[in-house]
Amino acid sequence: MTKIVTHKEGALDKYYIPALIVGLKVTLKQFYKTLFLGQSTTINYPEERREYSQRFRGEHFISVDPQKTENCTACYLCQTVCPADCITIVAGERPEDANPYGVKKEKRPVSFDIDALRCCFCGFCEEACPKDAIKLSRNYELATLNRETAVYDLDHLKREVKGRG
């Protein structure tokens, strides 16, 4: 059952001044609290920063091993699961002479792009990854000056970070 709520316009609503005063009351209350009681709701970003949850999902990164080789094996599971279709991987074989790992890391991503403008930060990619390679860090400062830099490539993503970063 849908309940329909209607608001009847009274005589006071016809003039905007009373409504303005009602609104200003909230502003004045916050103004008073901030100025005299020191109970501020805003912070002086970027000098001050909020503490986010450990489970906050921000910018992606791809973890690397001690030799700084990405852990990703280009299995495409993250690309498959991504609901926003923002991961594009090109897989290939690690050149035999440049592969100290043998078969363990013979398949590698030749390129790995994430379009952060499409990403909805659902974390499904992280969930799907069998190698714990792709992860979402707690970095939320993702603003860029143009669209191109919002597409992260492998070099941008590869990071030596412990845990969630």
Partner: peptide, 9 residues
């Protein structure tokens, strides 16, 4: 074809 594509695509 090896490593070029996952077949489900």
């Amino acid at each position: 074809f090896r490593f070029h594509k996952r077949v489900w695509f």
